[in-house]
Design a protein around this nucleic acid. Structure first.
Lengths: 187, 187
DNA sequence: CACCTTAACGCAAATTATTAGCGTTAGTGA
DNA sequence: TCACTAACGCTAATAATTTGCGTTAAGGTG
């Protein structure tokens, strides 16, 4: 993961935006393994050395871009009940991460040398679950434990996506959620 | 992951052995991000072009080496009961994967382009669990479901190792196992 | 607002990694 | 033993990465 910018404004920020945009563009256009730093640099209108100096290598850059794409911009949908809130959020999450680009984003984040990107990515997921839990609490519903939800719902989904040992279908997600919330607690 | 060799014996096999050995050596000596193909080639006594032709890039080579290191050579220890068999195996697995080199191996395998290495790695774990289950069955103990064990024990452990969001301690592993096998089933 | 400090940049040269062509070696099966 | 060809070694060409150095401009200060 790229270090935090010491300078926030102006040129430095413009370059970050341009490089991120160029990278996202290329990720949609051509195969990820074919993307090179000079390629991104040309598209972004900066010299390659700027990218190397700022992001280190292409792995860290890809992790940074993936992380930026995962940064929560909106709260998960409010569907009226905790069970369906969780289902909606988790199924969408699983679908996004199961896709080709989703898997590549996860892979880039997990492969990043420092490990900061992975922690941050995990934190985003936890943050969303916290939102759902707080919402449930305000409704007067029984709350759930975030760490337990990570273990019993998120972890298996991510595991199967990364190891490709089974399809992560909406039905599979629903089963994990029902199992976690208690099978009797139908909605 | 490297494709299977079309030729099994002689020179081709010797080169594979030498390159793997050189790579493992370097992984223990210097930082993984500093390892280059020409470096490995020199240590192994082969020209770099041979490595590029056979393994594609350094990512695939590292994944191949990591996978070879994970290949089961012996069955997990027989401790006399299923619960402690699982505990012994899982705690050892978690400890190995939590270490610096373990995490890097997982990272290399998950980052490999084809995805075959990840599937294979997962298969090794399943194979070990099958051994434990069959052993329990022969003893007349109640058996367990492999897929469920992967979801409830292995997946959370691997998730936390990869995302670095919590320490994976032996106590944590024991809790996952007890929870899976039923809290009342103390040993 | 003008000035100072220095992080971050652009450029270009030097280094290093990767790819590709081509002749050679040595597994494998007849 | 021989024929066939996958896999190799060598080398030249190409591409990526690193590094030094002068320049630009962000952010702070008087």
């Amino acid at each position: 993961m790229a270090r935090e910018m010491l300078r926030q404004g102006g040129r430095s920020a413009r370059i970050q935006t341009a490089v991120h945009a160029a990278t996202r563009d290329l990720l949609e256009t051509i195969d990820r393994s074919a993307i090179t730093v000079p390629m991104i640099a040309e598209k972004a209108g900066v010299p390659p050395s700027t990218i190397y100096r700022r992001w280190g290598d292409i792995g860290d850059l890809l992790a940074d871009v993936a992380l930026a794409h995962m940064r929560p911009i909106a709260d998960p949908t409010d569907t009226g009940s905790m069970h369906s809130d969780i289902e909606t959020f988790i199924i969408e999450y699983a679908e996004e991460m199961s896709s080709g680009v989703g898997r590549e984003m996860l892979s880039d984040i997990l492969g990043s040398s420092s490990g900061g990107a992975a922690q941050q990515c995990c934190h985003y997921t936890i943050h969303h679950l916290e939102t759902l839990r707080d919402r449930a609490e305000q409704r007067g519903e029984a709350v759930f434990d975030i760490a337990a939800a990570m273990d019993k719902i998120v972890a298996p989904i991510v595991y199967h996506i990364m190891f490709r040992d089974r399809e992560v279908t909406p039905d599979y997600c629903r089963a994990l959620i029902s199992d976690f919330l208690g099978k009797t607690a139908g909605r």
